[in-house]
């Protein structure tokens, strides 16, 4: 009896092993599309998790976009299958406008992915930072920034406000700030010379450094433009 049971169980195990399929019957995606959102070679700072673009792969019966989120320093990275994709930045995304692509005569960019590729996406921001300098004296963070208006004419936009944000971590925005200062667009006399300062509050748990950056809210544009993140010791 026992023998039969033994044989049976062995047989069952063998059957399972033989009929079990490979872990997955599809190859996993293997090619990286990496790059930055840039204007004249300089990456554009945005808010963490708020700006994304879409990749569409034509030729399938049902279509669904692959959304690629841009990091707060304007970088992106997506792991994809090799294929030809259409890259579109939806019109409301980011503090910038798309540039017409010479290949497609529209804002669509054709991306031929064949192995990992590095590609910067050139866009037209409404404003860019010439500089954004920050310093600490005592527990006060002082900032002086210089902006440059890039888009003029029909599409030009005003500045709603400029904010200085301070955060405990590398992620700096209105969402995470522990202290901030604000100047309204109407109060800015010279966009080449904007100064703001704010106090570092008591931090729990205490730390001897903060991260800071400046954000610009452009009117009619949801996403803010940000300067690079700076770590400040005090």
């Amino acid at each position: 009896m026992n023998k039969i049971l033994n044989k049976l169980s062995m047989f069952a195990v063998a059957l399972l092993l033989l009929t079990g399929c490979a872990l997955d019957n599809y190859e996993e995606p293997g090619s990286f599309l990496k790059g930055r959102i840039v204007y004249q070679g300089e990456p554009i700072g945005v808010e963490y998790n708020q700006v994304s673009f879409q990749l569409w792969e034509p030729g399938w019966e049902l279509s669904k976009s692959i959304d690629v989120t841009v990091s707060q320093d304007g970088e992106f990275s997506a792991l994809l299958f090799d294929a030809q994709y259409k890259l579109i930045i939806p019109s409301h995304q980011g503090p910038f406008m798309s540039i017409e692509n010479s290949g497609t005569n529209s804002d669509t960019i054709i991306v031929d992915l064949n192995g990992s590729t590095e590609m910067d996406i050139e866009v037209l921001p409404f404003y860019v930072f010439n500089s954004a300098d920050m310093s600490v004296s005592g527990t006060t963070v002082n900032m002086s920034a210089s902006l440059n208006k890039v888009v003029t004419g029909v599409d030009e936009r005003n500045i709603d406000r400029v904010n200085l944000y301070i955060s405990k971590t590398h992620f700096v925005s209105g969402n995470t700030s522990v202290s901030s200062a604000e100047i309204g667009g109407g109060d800015i006399t010279d966009i080449g010379n904007i100064t703001l300062s704010t106090e570092i509050p008591d931090l729990t748990p205490s730390q001897s450094y903060v991260y800071a950056r400046v954000g610009v809210k452009i009117s009619g544009v949801e996403d803010m433009l940000f300067s690079p993140v700076q770590k400040l010791e005090f």
């Binding site: 049902l62 279509s63 669904k64 976009s65 409301h92 969402n175 949801e222």
Partner: peptide, 21 residues
């Protein structure tokens, strides 16, 4: 741990890709 953020895209809820297809 996080403040509420109502994005402009929240004013009208998204129509799913299944419906658009």
């Amino acid at each position: 741990t996080n403040p509420d953020r109502f994005r402009l895209g929240n004013y009208y809820s998204r129509i799913g890709d299944d419906l658009l297809n």
